[in-house]
């Protein structure tokens, strides 16, 4: 955690490693651990219940408690949620949404980061007249509710023939990812020593050469943070998915909501929970694998440099 403060380009306190010293065993400690464990239950319970429910058969769900572990473990709900559950017109399960989400997320992450990193680089090293005006608009734009801009964007996309298309959605994600990512990269590149940039300039390197040969390799850690940030955000998006794609291109979140909140047929709670877990697999995997980098992404996004 200490690296969170250190990475915000603030003077990092040398003693950031920990708070006041305390005795090892005390009544305080018992109270602290007690509260932490109780709170941990609140945070873990939904995950536990999701998992347990998804492994039970329907009769067992009707009979028993949601907190009880399954007497008989079955993976059928998972299979059904993935491959045969019906959403609206088609009955090929969440797998369709999964692949749609992949098709949306991969190019969106790529383009949003490519554009924003160049923005950040240009803003920190090649400041041109008026650059800061656009940057300020961009940052303010991050706070404008999407609802205000969404309808004119629909019209614009329709004009250029991308409305309902995956390409249109990728464009929208690139646009709305720009403020936070540009800020992230601008702050990062601002901390690069100026001498390095000047030396490259003296050697005759130009805008794109410096970016590709010097800045890009140096900025790998911040690219990783950006990928984590964007993959999670885009995978979890619902609003843009509903508005800018057609039903057969719906991302996983939209499809999941349609499955669980559909009013027709018998409610299959175990399939619903398996589907819910399935949609959470990608962001959770990223979260657990990335560890401190995830936190760094949040902190970098949250704290203005």
């Amino acid at each position: 955690m200490a690296d969170v403060t250190a990475n915000m380009q603030r003077p990092s306190p040398a003693h950031a490693s920990g708070p006041k010293p305390r005795r090892a065993f005390s009544r305080n400690n018992i109270v602290i651990y007690g509260i932490l464990v109780v709170l941990a239950v609140y945070y873990l319970l939904p995950f536990y219940v999701m998992l347990m429910t998804s492994l039970k058969g329907l009769p067992e769900i009707r009979m028993g408690s949601i907190f009880a572990p399954p007497m008989e473990i079955t993976f059928e709900p998972w299979v059904k949620a993935w491959s045969t559950v019906c959403t609206g017109l088609n009955c090929d399960g969440l797998s369709r949404g999964f692949w749609n989400s992949i098709k949306i997320t991969v190019p969106s992450v790529f383009f949003s980061i490519a554009v924003a990193s160049v923005n950040g680089y240009a803003l920190s090293m090649w400041r041109f007249k008026g650059a800061n005006v656009f940057f300020t608009i961009l940052i303010i734009g991050a706070f404008i509710p999407y609802q205000v801009m969404i309808y004119p964007i629909v019209i614009l996309l329709r004009e250029i023939g991308l409305y309902g298309d995956l390409g249109g959605l990728v464009l929208v994600h690139t646009i709305f990812g720009m403020p936070i990512l540009t800020l992230l990269f601008r702050n990062y590149f601002s901390s690069v020593p100026e001498e390095l940039f000047k030396a490259a300039r003296v050697d005759g390197a130009r805008f794109w050469t410096i970016y590709l040969k010097i800045m890009l390799p140096m900025a790998v850690p911040i690219f990783v943070v950006a990928v984590i940030l964007q993959t999670t955000a885009i995978w979890n998006d619902f609003l843009f998915g509903v508005i800018f794609t057609r039903p057969d291109n719906y991302p996983m979140t939209v499809q999941l909501n349609n499955i669980v909140n559909s009013v027709t047929g018998v409610k299959e709670y175990n399939v619903n929970m398996a589907a819910t877990l399935l949609s959470g697999v990608v962001p959770l995997t990223i979260y657990f694998l990335s560890g401190k980098l995830f936190v760094r992404g949040i902190a970098a996004g949250a704290v203005k440099g």
Binding site: T232, D237, T253, T276, S279, I286
Partner: peptide
């Protein structure tokens, strides 16, 4: 922190 990684839909 893990709930923050999940979507609002989930």
């Amino acid at each position: 922190l893990y709930p923050y990684a999940l979507s609002f839909i989930v």
